[in-house]
Design a protein around this nucleic acid. Structure first.
Lengths: 245, 245
DNA sequence: CCAAAAGTGTTATCGATACACCCATGT
DNA sequence: ACATGGGTGTATCGATAACACTTTTGG
């Protein structure tokens, strides 16, 4: 009876989809997962994520777990969707890995998805005890088979980010260094939204954003005309824009 | 040890925020909860929701549970946010009620929030064994203390719907009868977004929506000039609108 | 004929788009 | 001097916003 409850009762985890931008490609932070076992040795990739603690809020769990797996601190994580397909943990590798690492018999896991946009030069602990974290091209996700349903989760996260960028393009500044050029910003925008922006129109549109300021400074060491740098002093996030008619 | 796991391990529930519109006010579907008990007799209100089954997807659980509690079928429920504050079930009344109704010792519950917009004349089973469902003014939520964190969940649902209406005003047609007047549509729009739309501009904007069609028919039995009726033939939901520049 | 709500058009402004040439720098 | 990417302005179009009088109907 009690045993029955244990398997009945789902566990809850969080998974963090962390995006970065290296100037060329949109990147996603993945963790290498390895299992050395009587049955099998394998190594593949997954999103940073784990089971939540007993007495822990979802947001706090996401922050804690991302920190434990990557060393990242003070990351603004935003919840975007939960995933609860009962078969999402039924792959045999996933089952074995879960039992080894959690030491629990786990019937099913409902996971809460979080996204973050971070500067790619943030210090990440790439190697910890059992895990190594690395940046991968978001593009390449189509060819990588991630653990669990993490391909699906990453895909939903990307769609979520796209929608957010359309509404509030300034969130892209989180992915860029403190000082950046208009071209970098435009490349990023176009990569995320899969668009091709016109250089002049893009400039006009971006300069309307409160807090985006041109600096009296240009990029160094470029083999052509040095582009101007910009920075974003975040004005308080504006309140819910109301449509009026 | 096993016992420890039982309390450690959170349960997962879904809660459904169902909105309707009676022509005057935005309404929310709530369920009366009663507990008659040695300790206390009380009665208050909550969102329709319950613990998910072992082998059940979140979306299916939401559909099933809403049906069980209200008789509603074929309702399009949309997941909008999950709530996992460990204290969300710690109110004494909520604890007692949970133990009585679920017959489980429940440590904590993470709940997944769903919203639906439905026509208010849909047949609802207002009385079932332990529950009675009724429509309440959304306005009045400020003065009703719902069970658990359901005030917060309802608030987030409302904000979610507002954002959705701004982006895709045609979702409002789900709240209106098959034939409706422009004034009804405008009232609804303004109630949801807390705006005051200009009659003429509103008409122009709405008539751009593909699928919204004026009928050769007017409302009957009104003590003034009879307004024209409109209907919405849903063209396939348009695909993700891409921003281009 | 009065009260109540329906219906209807024009103008001004703003934001979005399309588009091409000269400029600064390093080699 | 040349190759590379940087920087800049104008004209058009469509969407939004402001705004007021006449029409229909029931009582």
């Amino acid at each position: 009876m009690k045993n029955e409850i244990i398997t009945y009762n789902p566990h809850v985890s969080v998974d963090c989809v962390v995006f970065g931008f290296d100037g060329e490609e949109l990147k996603i932070l993945l963790i290498e997962r390895t299992l050395n076992d009587d049955a099998e040795n394998f190594s593949d990739k997954k999103l940073p994520g784990s089971i939540i603690y007993e007495d822990e809020d979802l947001d706090s769990a996401a922050t804690r777990i991302l920190n434990e797996l990557t060393g990242l601190k003070n990351i603004f994580l935003h919840q975007f969707k939960s995933f609860g397909d009962p078969k999402r943990t039924s792959n045999l590798r996933d089952k074995n890995w879960l039992e080894k690492t959690t030491k629990l018999k786990i019937g099913r896991i409902v996971t809460v998805g979080y996204v973050a946009l971070i500067k790619i030069d943030r210090k990440i602990i790439f190697e910890s005890e059992n895990t190594t974290a690395h940046w991968y091209d978001v593009k390449s996700l189509a060819n990588i088979q991630l653990a669990f349903d993490h391909n699906q989760i990453a895909g939903e996260a990307l769609r979520y980010i796209r929608r957010s960028v359309m509404l509030e393009p300034f969130i892209l500044f989180d992915l860029l260094p403190k000082k950046f050029t208009m071209t970098q910003l435009r490349n990023l925008y176009d990569i995320v939204l899969e668009t091709k922006s016109d250089v002049r129109n893009f400039q006009k549109k971006m300069l309307q954003i409160e807090g985006l300021e041109p600096l009296e400074e240009v990029q160094k060491d470029v083999p052509y005309r040095a582009p101007r740098l910009y920075s974003f002093k975040k004005a308080r996030r504006r309140e819910g824009t109301k449509a009026r008619m």
